[in-house]
Design a protein around this nucleic acid. Structure first.
Length: 421
RNA sequence: GGAGAAGUGGCCGAGUAGGUUUAAGGCGGCACCCUGCUAAGGUGUUGUGUGGAGUAAUCUGCACCGAGAGUUCGAAUCUCUCCUUCUCCGCCA
């Protein structure tokens, strides 16, 4: 959520920045509602003050045995007027709130300007794409041949885009999860979290999934509960509504969870294999920090995710997303893309974002400034560290050999207990 | 799921036959004073949100006693719905 005071004071600037995302975005309506809302509030406040004083007077008069009929009927009239104003106040308030909650974050000045993913900027490439003189198989064929992921029975049990890991497949998936968590907790200093995977609508609003993206999520019938699309949602909201001490920052948290996405609107995309599933595993990195440190913390968090790819010896590149491609809540975002032979290109495996105070304002996460003693909104950051299923696919494809076996990366072997698949 | 009890400021804890409560008191925090230092003591101060005035320090209004709705001239206090916690029962890994 954008700061209404910032909008009031710099309307042209905010509009200009929002139009970098999408030329149709504008805060003009918010401003006109805000103007009216404040007028109504001032009127209502004044009347409430009058009522308060007069009611007190009635109390005193009654004690003295005076007749209060006249003044009572006066206040009653006033109360009706107040009620009308309060209704108007509430209406404008909720209108403004919905508009504010539906307006995306303003992009950072350093976010490349452009309207689509074609305007994303490659920052660097790391690792060599292996040159081989045999035909590399896509991971879905490897999975089926080795019977480590059963796509058909996954669909039978659930629906398309659900799959069933078996035997060494299930073991490899679990090994990857444990490896990720161990690196982040032991080498990078993150606290491990295991959160609920169903959360309420307030929590979903805090990180920006609601109110705009309800159709992307699975919702429980007759309950105010949604399946999380990412651990970002419960983990970022852990301290919602709280005021932290400045000494408690930065907070580094990592969580493994399954993630659930309806993938509405991606019909026909990535239909084969593990790349786009309704349920997938992910290890997420989340940070809460002060505004002064968020740029630096964003870089460090991105490096933490890259470090995993480097340990696995998977070739990847870092891309800075353009203003037209960054997520709703983000002001700046780096994608990490891993090389996938079956796609003959790099494919997203992590998305590392800086949200500024956008999520903190929605979720009301603050810290008390040591200097002023006043509460300040934290900055929130997150990134995948990494997507597990896509890592699984990247390992199978990049480390397959001519004889059809797959050599497990060294760092994973103590987790799998075997080195060849 | 059933039956009972309870939810007040950072914490503890008064306040419910509605009306100077604009929430007592204590603890903690902060500032200053006293003491050679420490301990103890003294004085003052103390939340959040949202408006208004002012360049600003600041001054000032309104709202907030789990959440929402209602009754009333007036609600922490009365009524209703919901949420959470605790105790007992049932069920269950």
């Amino acid at each position: 959520m954008l700061d209404i005071k910032l909008i009031r004071e710099n309307p042209q600037k905010i509009n200009e920045l929002l139009k970098r995302r999408n030329p149709e975005l504008s805060i003009d309506e918010i401003i006109s509602i805000d103007l009216e809302r404040r007028k109504v509030q001032t009127l209502a406040d004044e009347l409430r003050a009058k009522r308060k004083n007069m009611s007190q007077e009635i109390g005193i008069m009654k004690k003295q045995g005076q007749n209060t009929d006249e003044i009572q009927s006066k206040v009653k009239e006033m109360a009706e007027e107040i009620k009308k104003l309060e209704e108007k106040e509430q209406e404008l308030d909720s209108k403004q709130k919905i508009l504010l909650l539906s307006t995306p974050n303003i992009p950072d000045e350093t976010t490349p300007i452009g309207l689509s993913e074609n305007d994303n900027v490659e920052i660097k490439r790391v690792g060599e794409v292996k040159k081989v003189n045999f035909v590399q198989k896509p991971h879905w064929d490897i999975c089926t041949e080795k019977d480590i992921v059963d796509f058909e029975r996954g669909v039978k049990l659930s629906q398309s885009r659900f799959s069933l890991y078996k035997g060494k497949g299930a073991q490899l998936e679990r090994a990857i999860i444990n490896f990720f968590l161990d690196v982040h907790t032991q080498e990078h200093g993150y606290q491990e979290i295991f959160p609920p995977v169903m959360v309420n609508s307030a929590t979903m609003t805090g990180t920006g999934q609601l109110p705009k993206f309800a159709q992307d999520m699975y919702k429980c019938e007759n309950e105010d509960l949604y399946l999380i699309p990412t651990a970002e949602v419960p983990v970022t909201n852990i301290y919602s509504g709280e005021i932290l001490n400045e000494e408690d920052l930065p907070k580094y948290m990592t969580a493994y969870t399954p993630c659930f996405r309806r993938e509405a609107g991606s019909a026909g995309k990535d239909t084969r294999g593990l790349i786009r599933q309704h349920q997938f595993n992910k290890v997420e990195l989340v940070k809460l920090c002060t505004p002064e440190t968020s740029v630096e913390e964003h870089e460090k968090l991105t490096r933490n995710a890259e470090h995993i790819l480097e340990l696995l010896e998977l070739p990847y590149r870092r891309v800075a997303l353009s203003t037209g491609d960054i997520g709703f809540s983000a002001r700046k975002c780096f994608d990490l893309e891993v090389w996938l032979p079956s796609y003959n290109s790099y494919k997203e495996i992590s998305s590392c974002s800086n949200f500024g105070d956008f999520q903190a304002r929605r979720a009301n996460i603050r810290y008390r400034s040591k200097e002023t003693g006043k509460p300040i909104f934290v900055h929130t950051l997150n990134g995948s560290g990494l997507a597990v299923g896509r890592t699984f696919a990247a390992i199978l494809e990049n480390f397959q050999t001519e004889d059809g076996s797959v050599v497990i990366p060294k760092v994973l072997r103590k987790y799998t207990g075997w080195d060849i698949l």
